[in-house]
Amino acid sequence: MEKTLAEMQREVDRYISQFKEGYFSPLSMLARMSEEVGELAREVNHSFGEKPKKATEEENSIELELGDILFITICFANSLGIDLTEAHDKVMHKFNTRDADRWTKKDTE
């Protein structure tokens, strides 16, 4: 079943709301997001770069790292009261107007 961003935001909020600690501070979440992006970079380097994994390194995946980044992004947005659907719509409007002629379009035949 496909989920909307709003559904994902509510699901994450239900999860976080069961804990007394609640959401981390914005600065802590930014640090956590940076950590997750670093873990994604490591996985991409192992999969597409010149640095293979050591035999002792645990198995991980780009998919899981992207999932971690999505989770912390949703936490960050929720903690600040940001509607990610609205944020997405604003960003797409920006790309569709400001960058409308920036890239070479594919032929539509």
Rank of each mutant, 00 (worst) to 15 (best):
E2A: 11
E2T: 08
T4H: 07
T4L: 09
A6F: 05
A6Y: 03
E7L: 10
M8D: 02
M8Y: 11
Q9K: 00
R10G: 03
E11P: 00
V12C: 01
V12K: 00
V12D: 00
V12W: 00
Y15N: 02
Y15A: 13
Y15K: 11
Y15W: 09
I16G: 02
S17H: 01
Q18Y: 03
Q18K: 07
F19W: 07
F19Y: 13
K20P: 01
K20R: 04
K20E: 09
F24I: 00
F24E: 15
S25Q: 03
P26W: 08
P26S: 13
P26Y: 13
P26I: 11
L27H: 03
S28W: 08
R32Q: 06
R32T: 03
M33R: 03
S34I: 10
S34F: 06
E35M: 10
E36A: 14
E36I: 12
G38I: 09
G38S: 06
A41T: 09
A41K: 06
R42G: 05
R42C: 06
E43S: 04
V44W: 11
V44R: 06
N45L: 15
N45F: 11
N45T: 15
H46D: 02
S47K: 12
S47W: 03
G49E: 09
E50S: 13
E50F: 13
E50I: 13
E50P: 05
E50V: 12
K51H: 04
P52D: 04
K53S: 07
K54W: 10
A55L: 06
A55H: 04
T56C: 08
E57K: 05
E58L: 15
E58V: 14
E59N: 07
E59R: 10
N60V: 05
N60K: 10
S61M: 08
I62W: 04
E65L: 12
E65Q: 14
G67R: 08
D68M: 13
D68F: 12
I69Q: 01
L70E: 02
F71L: 15
I72P: 02
I74A: 02
I74R: 00
C75S: 11
C75D: 07
F76Y: 13
N78K: 01
S79W: 07
S79C: 11
L80C: 04
G81S: 04
I82K: 10
D83R: 11
D83G: 09
D83I: 10
T85P: 00
T85R: 05
T85K: 10
H88N: 07
D89M: 02
K90Q: 12
M92S: 09
H93W: 05
H93I: 02
K94H: 15
F95C: 04
F95D: 03
F95Q: 09
N96E: 12
N96W: 01
T97H: 09
R98Q: 14
R98W: 08
D99H: 07
D99M: 07
D99I: 01
A100G: 04
A100R: 12
W103R: 03
W103F: 13
T104G: 07
T104L: 12
K105A: 11
K106L: 15
K106Q: 14
D107Q: 04
D107E: 08
T108Y: 11
E109N: 13
